[in-house]
Every structure is written in structure tokens, then in C-alpha cells.
């Protein structure tokens, strides 16, 4: 079982770390669902959703390296990360509806995290804030895709 380490969000680095954990969790959940025999008909789209989240991790790594400006590296004091921790252990015996509900919850929570953290990140860097905000909106699009399966 993959271990996740969702940190408190007190700095730019820890916000990005939290986001990376969310992406890793989402990607692994879709992989897990894609491997279930009873969901074989949706295997390809589920794998594609996993790949989408893996690519988003790359974008986050890039943001951490390229968009960080130490001149405005302010502490983050108003983001309660505990409300964005997601369930990562996929229950046994999920049918398609259950799978959608389980993964959809991750997308919803992630979307909320990105939108809220983008507001916080505005004090750090507008560009980082835009990326986080865009990722939050993408979660909604991913959820719509998931529901259409």
C-alpha cells in the first residue's frame, strides 16, 4: 500500500508538497480502479485519468522550481490543510457507480484545495496562484469526465 504524507501547509514548499500528495493519491486510485476486473470496460479512460494526474505532478514540480521567488517568500498562516486530506484506500468490491463516487470525492476535495490555496498563494506570486487556480478548475473537468464513463 502506498504511504501518503499530507503535511500542514505553512510554507510555499509545503503547499506544493500537499498538492503533490493529492496528485499521487489520485493517480494511484485511478490505476487501482483500472486494474479491477469488474471495471474492465472503463480501463482505458481510467488509465488516462491516472496519467493526467501524473502530468499535473510534473507541472507542480516545475512550479516549485521555477516560480518560487525568495523575495516574496511569505509564511502561510491561514490554510487549514486537515480539511483537504483525501481517502486513498480504495474499498474492495466497488461497482462503477461506487468507483465514480470514490474518485469524484478526491477530485472535489482537490479542487477545493487548489482554489483555496491559490488565494493564499496570491500573496506569494500571481503566477503560482494562477497555476493553482487553473488546476482546481481542471479537477472539475476531470470529475465531469469521470461521471461520463
Amino acid at each position: 500500500m502506498t504511504e501518503y504524507d499530507f503535511p500542514e501547509c505553512t510554507s510555499f514548499g509545503s503547499v506544493i508538497r500537499f498538492a503533490l500528495e493529492l496528485e499521487k493519491a489520485a493517480s494511484n486510485v485511478y490505476d487501482e480502479l483500472a486494474g479491477r476486473p469488474n471495471l474492465a470496460s472503463a480501463q482505458e479512460p481510467l488509465k488516462a485519468l491516472s496519467e493526467t494526474h501524473r502530468k499535473r505532478s510534473e507541472l507542480l514540480e516545475h512550479t516549485r522550481r521555477e516560480k518560487l521567488n525568495e523575495m516574496i517568500l511569505e509564511p502561510i498562516q491561514d490554510l487549514d490543510s486537515s480539511s483537504y486530506v483525501v481517502e486513498t484506500e480504495v474499498p474492495e468490491g466497488l461497482d462503477m457507480a461506487g468507483a465514480k463516487a470514490f474518485a469524484g470525492k478526491i477530485e472535489e476535495t482537490s479542487s477545493r484545495f487548489y482554489v483555496d490555496s491559490s488565494k493564499t498563494a496570491q500573496s506569494l506570486l500571481a503566477e503560482a496562484a494562477r497555476i493553482l487556480d487553473k488546476m482546481g478548475k481542471e479537477n472539475e473537468a476531470i470529475k465531469a469526465k469521470l461521471e461520463s464513463l
Binding site: S11, F12, G13, R64, R65, E66, L68, N69, E70, M71, L73
Partner: peptide, 11 residues
């Protein structure tokens, strides 16, 4: 901190 060090590496 690691954020400060990453920022310095970028500079």
C-alpha cells in the same frame, strides 16, 4: 529553509 534554499538556487 528548503524554500529559501530553492529560491537561492534559482537565483
Amino acid at each position: 529553509t528548503i524554500d529559501e534554499a530553492r529560491g537561492e538556487t534559482r537565483r
